[in-house]
Write a protein that binds this DNA or RNA. Sequence first.
DNA 1: GCCAACGTTGGC
DNA 2: GCCAACGTTGGC
Length: 154
Amino acid sequence: MNYWLMKSEPDCYSIDDLAANSPAMWEGCRNYTVRNYFRDTMQVGDLAFFYNSNCDIPGIIGVMEIVSEAYPDPTQFDPSSNYFDEKSPKENPRWVLRDVSFREKFLRTISLAELRTVPHLADMHVLRKGQRLSVMPVTPDEWEIINQMSGIRA
DNA sequence: GCCAACGTTGGC
DNA sequence: GCCAACGTTGGC
């Protein structure tokens, strides 16, 4: 099984939205590396951190589970969607997604700034300069450390 | 709002 | 296949 970190802008889609309506489609990823993770690497039962990006306190806010295989993202065919991709062939869809289910919301955000203070997390993808992927792998060690941090209540 | 980083596009 | 231009991400 694998661990992941998946970003969302909470103003657009928050972990409370997921908790209120779960499982849900993790739609709108339009990056080939992410597409390949969804299609090839993820497995049903994998766990993922829910990461808040582009907000007051960027960081990890909870946990969700991957609960479906990859299948075509319907928004790529919807002209009214922000994620519409007119170049995606219907017979060979360019973009796929996974269904995710809410698992846990942390009592506080484990902020990016806090993650940077942990020596054992120095190699985390999300901490690398210039990284912009919205879905990225997390190692089992990193997963364990962050879960322990989430249990240290502020 | 700025801007560094980097993925994507498209002309050649 | 190269690479310049462009667009997007996302922290700050």
